[in-house]
Amino acid sequence: MTQRATSKILLALVAAFALPLGASATENKIARNLESVEVMHDGKPVTVYRGHDRDAKLPEIFQKTDRGCPPFCVQPIIIADGVETIGELELLGYLKRMAQGEDDLMVIDSRTPDWVMRGTIPGSVNIPWNKINRETAGTFETPSEADSFHHILEDELGVDKKPDGAGWDFSRAKTLVLFCNGIWCPQSSMNIHTLIGIGYPVHKLKWYRGGMQDWVSVGLTIVKP
């Protein structure tokens, strides 16, 4: 056997062991047994998968590491007792269930529209954090802000006013998954605290702590308005 033939065999063996059994050089699954997930966004099907560009980089807007705290402080892993913190696979599970017709679920992008225009998670709905967040005193600054919040509760989140008008009935409230820009972003966490403050059941609140920065860091599909 010539030296050239021996080298070719060695290179082939190295390539074979460098990839999992049955994998190809372009394969990039979401998880070992998960190729992609079909979701619905604005009434249209979208396939969520991981990109196949091994040289891809984070978008420039997510490359900064020093953003200043406050307000951009690192968020705790547990945002409130009883509120489940989830990751990408769990979020994909909720999006899949929504696409299959479960209408008591909602994934909320809590960021302002200027951020959403740069890309969001397919299947999410934008409700900007300042449409839900209250000031530190526990109230909205103007009656119109309070009215807007009440409309969101009733028209989008499935919350009903109690018959006597005193408080809210959460028996038909949707399970919400909230996210924003990442572990340094306080917007979704403030919304969660506001919702808990008015009585929203904690078991109906989920928090995707990693947010957009984690989502794009693993190459998952985004959509732009």
Rank of each mutant, 00 (worst) to 15 (best):
I183G: 09
E35L: 12
A23T: 03
I108A: 12
Q100D: 15
S217N: 12
D103R: 14
V39S: 08
G211K: 02
P186S: 07
P20E: 10
R32K: 14
P45L: 00
W168T: 05
I152A: 10
C180W: 01
T65N: 09
T221D: 06
P186M: 07
K29A: 07
K224W: 00
R50F: 00
Q63A: 13
A18D: 00
H52K: 15
P128S: 13
K44L: 05
K131Y: 09
R4M: 07
W115I: 01
A137Y: 07
K96Q: 14
D147Y: 05
S217E: 03
S24G: 15
A99I: 01
R111S: 06
T85I: 00
R32H: 09
N133E: 09
L91G: 04
D66N: 12
D53M: 05
L13S: 09
E38G: 05
V107P: 11
L11W: 04
L205M: 05
L89I: 14
P76G: 12
I108L: 13
H151N: 13
M212P: 01
L95H: 04
T2H: 07
N33G: 06
Q100V: 00
Q75I: 03
S124K: 03
M106N: 07
S24I: 01
Y208W: 02
N181D: 13
L195W: 02
L10M: 11
V37F: 00
P45C: 02
S7G: 02
P71K: 11
T194D: 10
L220P: 02
P20K: 11
Q100H: 08
A5S: 14
N181A: 11
A25G: 01
T221N: 07
F170R: 10
P163C: 08
E154S: 15
I61F: 08
D104L: 00
D160G: 04
R54N: 06
G210I: 00
I127F: 04
Q63C: 11
K174V: 04
H151F: 04
F72D: 10
E84T: 14
D114S: 14
E60T: 13
T6W: 06
G93Y: 02
